[in-house]
Amino acid sequence: MLDGLRTPLIPALAVACLALAPARFLVWTNEASSVLWLPLRPLAHFGVAAASWLRPPTPTPQADAVTLAEERDELLALVQRLRSELEFAHEAIEVLEGLPRRAEPSPRPAAARVIAVDPSGIATLNVGQRHGIAAGDPVVASGGRLVGRIGDPVAVNGSVLVPASHASGVELRVRILDEGGGREVGEQVLCLLEPDGDGWVAEVDAQRVAIGATVRLDDPAWPMSAQGLRLGRVVERREVPERPLRAAIRVEPAWSMVDGPVLVVQRTGTGDLP
């Protein structure tokens, strides 16, 4: 076959170049080795078995110490994971307890965690369609605060959460209530909020809205389970010179990304909890 050919000079020069090449150019050799060893592995298995039979491995004190250290590291990792899951469950329960009780059947809640936030404020959650998440599902935070709704659900995890304050070009119908001392003391004002950066602006009856008033959702475009949830509070009020009976107000969202990564999605779809 190769007897007639002269010495393998050119292949040898090529191998010499490869022998001195940087490691990043030689990563492909691992795949080549895998292909070469594919039919040889069963034989190697027998070889190892024969070697173990002929010369059984003797455990040394050092080997025992290494095994113990590995077991300790695994258990520590397990404890840390369980602690993290416990904290997540506590936070999720806290969020659920803050939701208002309703007469109608409530949607099935799913605890979720924010896993990424892009500079525009749009967040990504660790849940997806497999967990029963659907587009438009409301997302709430502890204390009955409305965060936003699911914009783009994906199969497993990575669903996009669009905060209510970032629904650009979409106005929200809300009720503004003066809830001094935890109970309603003032009138309810129905108005439309217009997104403005990281909050909303609206024009209301100047006599009926004070700074600090609570803003709650009352928008038929949102699911029933989101109605009445706290959206924010009035932080600024100024008069409109051309309309003396009106006032321009600014509403600050009740939830921001720094409040914590644990949220609850009020699911409308079916699926397993994450």
Binding site: A12, L18, A19, L26, T29, N30, A32, S33
Partner: peptide
């Protein structure tokens, strides 16, 4: 191709040459 070696910052490769050129 059957001999893994560790190079650089812990990367494992099969270095062609030691046996190929050595046995040659």
């Amino acid at each position: 191709l059957s001999t893994p070696v560790i190079v650089g910052d812990g990367e494992v490769i099969r270095l062609l040459g030691p046996a190929t050129l050595g046995w040659l």
